[in-house]
Write a protein that binds this DNA or RNA. Structure first.
Lengths: 216, 216
DNA sequence: GTCATTGTTTTACAGTCGTACAACAAGACG
DNA sequence: CGTCTTGTTGTACGACTGTAAAACAATGAC
């Protein structure tokens, strides 16, 4: 018996590989088929290594969920940052990022749904969900305030929080329908639909957000 | 060894018990813990019996998903029927049913999400999802037409289909946010929010749907 | 070049999984 | 009451599960 040759990786790199492999296997094979052995194989690693980075497979799944949420949020935050100091552009970028690739994808939706299905029976998933939701809402609220203020609309924290909730509902609904790929609207249209609806919800003049659309 | 005493049930009754037990275990314990043995125990039956009603556990899961979708749709259809021949009341009832108990629940959301997470890796789930979505859309389209016509608004099948898609997105988004129980709005308000937004989407006079609200 | 460290593989194990099938008993029918 | 049908139970089996731990080898320090 000759042993497999291998390469030592930094803790961060290997951990990341395992998390990405976990997500890939769940999305491609389903959560039921996502065994430790299959995930390890996908990561190009032996099954035993998992326990070197995570206390249990369950802990790795929790970390993978947090990893996914982090990707979704940071992708949106990065696109918002492309707007620089322009409040309208920042908000538009944030909304658009959530309604276009890579956040808009059946891959991510499949994972999101799988984990959402577990928050009822596992408090760890529920906590990760709650934290991500809070962070998302807070970012929205912070971005909404200056946009509303610039158009001389009420923009107290309380106002903006309610608007953030409504906007989050809109984004979630459109993201869900778009990612489910019902083929009912061109994915490229989705961001425009969302930006237009966001203007309505925030009572902004027509085009305030839409003219900052990056795609197309 | 003395055998457990048991009762023979009709095929329909036993099948239904097994499907309900399947859903209950998935929601309460998570899909990973939903083994055939645990499901059988929940149904008050031995594990071997499953194979008498379903060719495999997988087939039972598929049937359970279809069962859930059927519940969601028929609950909404029944509440629509309470509106009798009044087109406005029928549509309002349909929308409201999807935004209040029993359709609005963390139990049902948990199941819905779990199955949605599997449509990417299993064609059988995808087919069930597609069929349910089509049926839902068609019901909306049929109910929208007379409401629009009564207010002398365009109501061709093409018009109503687009409106049904938009309305479905709204319902899905609100249902999702409401069922996730973020505690951000009173569940009783949700139906009112949805009816009000539906009036906007369909360009109906204020109160057209809202005054048919059954709850409260 | 040698050694120590430790990331990685391999093997082993007890438990659980889905399921096939034989034994049984509940209910229907005469 | 006896007999037949078949819904239901109990058991057995091989495959797979998560995980513990020993054996090993890649890398860095000197």
């Amino acid at each position: 018996m000759t042993r497999r040759s291998f390469q030592r990786l930094s803790e961060d790199a290997r951990r990341n590989d395992l998390l990405e492999a976990t997500l890939a296997v769940i999305a491609d094979c389903g959560i039921n088929a996502a065994s430790a052995r299959r995930i390890a194989e996908r990561a190009g690693v032996s099954a035993g290594l998992i326990r070197h980075y995570f206390a249990s497979k369950e802990e790795m799944l929790h970390a993978a969920y947090a990893h996914l949420i982090g990707q979704l949020i940071s992708t949106a935050a990065e696109q918002a940052d492309l707007g620089g100091t322009d409040a309208d552009a920042r908000l538009a970028g944030f909304v658009e990022a959530n309604l276009s690739a890579p956040n808009l994808s059946d891959f991510k939706l499949s994972l999101w749904a799988t984990f959402i299905g577990m928050i009822r029976s596992d408090a760890a998933y529920a906590a990760i969900h709650r934290d991500g939701y809070r962070e998302f809402l807070e970012m929205l609220q912070v971005m909404i305030a200056p946009v509303r203020a610039a158009h001389e609309l009420p923009a107290t924290p309380a106002d903006c929080r309610l608007l953030a909730i409504a906007l989050n509902g809109l984004i979630d609904g459109l993201w869900l329908e778009g990612s489910l790929e019902h083929g009912l609207y061109d994915p490229r249209e989705l961001a425009a639909i969302g930006l237009r609806a966001a203007e309505d919800i925030l009572r902004l003049p027509e085009g305030t957000l839409l003219r900052h659309r990056a795609g197309q």
